[in-house]
Design a protein around this nucleic acid. Structure first.
Length: 256
DNA sequence: ACGCGTGTTACTGT
DNA sequence: GACAGTAACACGCG
């Protein structure tokens, strides 16, 4: 469930709470897709000091003193918890035990959240780094609708279903617009909306939940919000009937 | 109490 | 190959 602003808030707080701690042991009760063996992971990380936690696309990255990085992808339901001495949370995927006795656990009842040791560098830009020029070039031949593009991690990393709707409303672009029909000026609005919506959301989350490291806060969202019937400017919010719901209004221009 | 929600991969079909 | 659509993963939550 967490999207980019949630992950951004988590990384901020994990950094505050965990930087400087040294790994005593790593346990991996359930990570089918981990790219190294449990023994290798424990061997490599044990003794290293946790230096930094940051977000890359939809992953959290934990950087250690010898330069190794542990990537955590929370997928739909991954949750992080801190614990004293022993993890009591169900559905544990991976546990980092620190020398002071405390620990960090990633859980996922669905079992699909994934840790990765030293994930490959991606050349796809992060959502907070794109500019209009990039979109113009990248979308020139793309006929897919713009919402699908925002969700495509091979084009732009970090945006999920809920924030895609929120961003497109702010840019006043219909989610069903054909990507290569969107005029350049509108692509500029889109880039501004991406940064504005995502950065404002992170601030809202940290303001209402200063220590958050899991879950999600969505009550401030204006469009992708089942409790709201109208946009802030008074237009009726329309919800389509697909498996991934799209929320939008007639205020958004359709390019086709 | 029961239906909704979320990311990714894998697959079919046009 | 581009693009659309769907299922599966399986439970917490209101």
């Amino acid at each position: 469930m967490p999207e980019l602003p949630d992950l951004q808030a988590f990384s901020h707080n994990l950094q505050k709470m965990l930087a400087g701690k040294t790994i005593k042991k790593v346990e991996v009760p359930n990570a089918k897709k981990l790219n190294v063996t449990t023994a290798e992971l424990d061997e490599i990380l044990s003794g290293q000091k946790l230096e930094k936690v940051y977000r890359e696309g939809k992953e959290l990255h934990i950087k250690f003193s010898k330069g190794d990085v542990l990537g955590l992808h929370l997928m739909l339901h991954g949750k992080l918890f801190l614990f004293d001495t022993k993890n009591e949370n169900k559905y544990s995927i991976i546990e980092l035990h620190f020398e002071d006795g405390r620990g960090l656990v990633l859980t996922d009842f669905q079992g699909i959240a994934t840790p990765t040791l030293n994930p490959d560098k991606k050349d796809v830009p992060d959502a907070l780094d794109v500019d209009a020029e990039y979109f113009k070039k990248r979308l020139a031949k793309t006929k897919t609708n713009i919402k699908t593009v925002l969700l495509d991690q091979k084009i732009i990393r970090g945006i999920g279903n809920a924030y895609a709707d929120e961003i497109l409303w702010h840019a006043r672009i219909s989610p069903f617009s054909v990507s290569n029909k969107i005029p350049e000026a509108k692509l500029k609005d889109l880039v501004k909306a991406i940064k504005g919506v995502l950065e404002d959301a992170e601030q809202s989350i940290l303001k209402s939940n200063p220590d958050i490291i899991n879950g999600e806060v969505r009550d401030f969202m204006n469009i992708h919000n089942s409790k709201k019937k109208q946009s802030p400017t008074g237009a009726a919010i329309i919800v389509n009937d697909a498996s991934r719901k799209t929320y939008y209004t007639e205020e958004q221009e359709l390019f086709e």
